[in-house]
């Protein structure tokens, strides 16, 4: 009987939750889905230029939310370039010149490799719960998935994007679309997930298009080639010395 009551409570609460979801909980589950102790991912970024398109390949080691190390693998011009993010600092190593350069201040607003992404976009805390309060606006279907539409409002003045709108898969708690807005409400950047996969029990976006909405152009595509969660990553990976190796 006791067991029956527990299951009943569970199902009821799930049903209740499904009817009246708590937006903060949704956000929390979204953050949980993407967070891991660490991950190693290999990805491609396709940047559209006026002459031709460029595909930049990279491999990244990410620890928590504040530390990341990325090495660029292709094309030849980019190969060997490395980036180290530690909290609010971002260093880039250029093998051609054997130089480690600090990207700080105004430079953080520059575009990464000519893409629609800026360095400050890379630097921001990926955990939305730390930055925003949420409200559910409604529901919509995207790539055949039912989604909640959440409106997020920044909790601090220092956060770059005052408002965001995210479409969260109701079952998988993965963001399938994101709009970032300026203070005036003007749409600045969009992220559209074109394809997701289940890897290691997590739903992971494997094809994403990132677009600066103020500029004309096709935006920047991200294709995830592989990802491993909670791997064994030695600490020395996240050091400046590793930039030069």
């Amino acid at each position: 009987m006791k067991e029956y009551i527990i299951w009943l409570v569970f199902f009821l609460s799930t049903a209740v939750f499904a009817q009246n979801p708590d937006p903060d909980r949704i956000l929390s589950k979204v953050d949980q889905n993407i967070s891991a102790r660490n991950r190693v991912s290999e990805a491609e970024m396709v940047i559209h230029g006026r002459h031709a398109d460029r595909t930049v390949k990279s491999i990244s080691w990410i620890k928590g939310t504040e530390t990341a190390f990325t090495e660029y693998l292709a094309p030849p011009r980019e190969k060997g370039t490395k980036m180290l993010k530690q909290k609010d600092n971002l260093w880039t190593y250029f093998p051609r010149t054997d130089r480690t350069v600090l990207i700080a201040g105004h430079l953080l607003h520059q575009s990464v490799m000519g893409s629609d992404l800026s360095y400050s976009d890379l630097m921001e805390d990926p955990k939305l719960q730390n930055l925003y309060t949420a409200e559910i606006l409604g529901e919509e279907t995207l790539i055949n998935r039912r989604c909640w539409i959440l409106e997020l409002v920044a909790t601090k003045k220092e956060i770059s994007y005052y408002k965001r709108k995210i479409w969260v898969d109701k079952e998988r708690f993965i963001v399938l679309k994101e709009n970032r807005y300026a203070l005036s409400g003007r749409l600045i950047k969009t992220t559209d997930v074109k394809k997701i996969e289940n890897i290691d029990g997590r739903w992971v976006p494997v094809k994403v298009v990132f677009k600066d909405q103020l500029k004309s152009g096709k935006g920047t595509e991200f294709n995830l080639i592989s990802i491993k969660f909670n791997d064994n990553i030695p600490d020395y990976v996240f050091t400046k010395a590793n930039l030069k190796k």
Partner: peptide, 16 residues
């Protein structure tokens, strides 16, 4: 014309 800037706090804003 669309203009974009960051305010004193670093927030992005854009207006026509």
């Amino acid at each position: 014309l669309t203009i974009q800037w960051r305010d004193i706090n670093g927030r992005i804003d854009a207006r026509d």
